[in-house]
């Protein structure tokens, strides 16, 4: 019987990396983008919930994004794959909508806004493409 992974290890490693970056975020110049603590907490909560729900639906974990500082204190969740690319931006302000854009480097694209405090079914088909 196949050993089913119980933890999204790729995502957990990426979240740990983001946490490490946060520790060094106070001693940088104005050109440097830095993680903001509270938006990072919301980004992590969104990703963990998305990963868990995705696994329930698809039987495996989705590919992990790269986390990075976005504009104006926001957090970027960025997937760059061979056949598609997706960017989700978690805003700095709690209660604001997250925005996203993705495409297949061709004519198919996805773009919009959603509440990052809940699971988003709209991006699932894109993450399945992996």
């Amino acid at each position: 019987m196949e050993n089913v992974k119980e933890q999204d290890t790729s995502l957990i490693a990426e979240l740990s990396r983001a946490d490490s970056s946060l520790e060094f975020s106070e001693d940088v110049d104005e050109d440097a983008g830095v993680f903001s603590h509270e938006p990072l907490i919301r980004a992590k909560a969104f990703l963990l919930a998305q990963s868990k729900q995705f696994r329930k639906i698809c039987g495996h974990f989705p590919p992990a994004p790269r986390l990075g500082p976005g504009p104006n204190g926001s957090i970027d969740l960025y997937w760059k794959e061979k056949d598609w690319e997706l960017l989700i931006n978690i805003p700095a302000e709690s209660g604001k909508m997250a925005t996203f854009y993705g495409d297949d480097y061709g004519s198919q694209k996805i773009k919009g806004s959603f509440d990052p405090s809940s699971f988003n079914y709209g991006i699932v088909p894109w993450l399945i493409r992996n």
């Binding site: 993705g102 773009k111 806004s113």
Partner: peptide, 9 residues
């Protein structure tokens, strides 16, 4: 915001 996310990619 949506347009900004698109143009950044």
């Amino acid at each position: 915001g949506e347009d900004l996310t698109e143009v950044r990619i």
